[in-house]
Design a protein around this nucleic acid. Structure first.
Length: 329
DNA sequence: AAAAGGCACAACCGCGACGAC
DNA sequence: GGTCGTCGCGGTTGTGCCTTT
């Protein structure tokens, strides 16, 4: 069915910003008569606008119960949580925030929250860690590099003196590399001194796996407008995976100042390669694994210590046969 | 001080859903 | 069941203001 747009038939109808006089006419009319038919309203109210324009002006701006001003942190949190469940259902999200319009929330999302999530490495559509190669490359470079300025990453350098911390760094590096997809022939890893090495191989029953990334599982693309189902378990951003203060732009990644190769002995590498040949065809379940990885990474780089359970979760998901319980953390 | 670029927000557009006939 | 009118939603655009260069 082809139908002409309701407002196009009368080109003389005014468009563009509303004047205070027009606003007053609309408010006066609705306060006296209500808004039964938007189609008929403009003529009755003495406005040279289409009904659609009147409805939008009323619902998004003139309605007396509209709450104006900046969004509070609580509102922001609610929006993000609801968005993770509902997707771009702005009107449904707005129904949970009294006084806020869908348009306002949509604008707030697009101008603030979306960017914020992207900066934090979270895909604003899926609410999961971004797994695109560029982002992971940045993270990888941060792990392998030592920025000239003092940053949380300095903690990683300091902690290298400790063998356990060293192992954890290696584990995180390894995971990031795997998440970038070592099988991707379109992508060549920079030489950052990284060795695909399982730092826990000295443990009994530890088997390194050549993990591969299933492209279809890496970036679950949400269909626009389609509800996302249950809320993602990924909600760690509330503590903040903060990258602020750390400039990861190309010029500030000092390749020559990178961390020394963590494991460099040729024998170790060859051992690793041998094990990789025997590895299971293990597919990464990128969702929860990346979640745990990034959470541990965040804590680690902030100088905090992630709980043992995080490390065990990471290790178990990467090397299921490693029996992490046997490892002394 | 002026120009350029970025940002925030209001408003518009197109389409689908839904109810009335 | 098909057509039409209306409403509401989500994506996109336009514009004014602010910040940076």
């Amino acid at each position: 069915m082809v139908r002409s747009p309701c407002c196009d038939t009368e080109s003389s109808l005014k468009k563009g910003p509303w004047t205070p006089e027009e606003d007053q006419k609309l408010v006066d009319y609705i306060s006296r008569h209500g808004y039964g038919s938007w189609r008929a309203l403009p003529k009755l109210a003495g406005l040279n606008r289409c009904g659609k324009s009147c409805r939008l002006r009323w619902t998004n701006y003139l309605r007396p119960d509209i709450k104006r001003g900046r969004f509070s942190e609580e509102e922001e949190r609610i929006i993000i949580n609801l968005h993770s469940v509902l997707g771009n259902k702005w009107s449904k999200i707005a129904s949970h925030l009294p006084g806020r319009t869908d348009n306002e929330i949509k604008n707030f999302w697009n101008t603030h929250i979306r960017k914020k999530l992207l900066q934090m490495g979270i895909d604003p559509i899926t609410h999961k860690p971004r797994t695109d190669l560029n982002h992971l490359l940045n993270l990888s470079q941060m792990l392998f590099s030592s920025p000239l300025t003092s940053s949380p990453w300095d903690n990683a350098l300091k902690l290298q003196t400790d063998a356990t911390q060293l192992a954890k760094i290696q584990l995180l590096q390894n995971l990031l590399l795997q998440l970038m997809g070592t099988n991707n022939t379109n992508y060549s890893l920079p030489n950052l001194g990284f060795q695909n090495f399982n730092p826990f191989e000295h443990q009994p029953n530890v088997m390194a796996h050549e993990t591969t990334v299933n492209p279809s599982s890496v970036s679950p693309q949400a269909t626009s407008g389609e509800p996302q189902g249950v809320a993602n378990s990924w909600s760690w951003f509330e503590g903040g995976f903060h990258m602020e203060g750390l400039d990861v732009s190309n010029n500030n990644i000092q390749q020559e100042n990178k961390l020394p190769p963590l494991i460099s002995e040729a024998s170790t590498i060859s051992k690793m390669e041998k094990k990789n040949e025997q590895a299971d065809d293990h597919q990464l379940s990128t969702g929860s694994q990346t979640s745990a990885t990034f959470e541990a990474l965040e804590k680690f780089m902030n100088g905090d210590e992630a709980s043992d359970s995080y490390w065990k979760e990471i290790l178990d998901s990467t090397w299921p046969s490693s029996s992490s319980s046997q490892i002394s953390w």
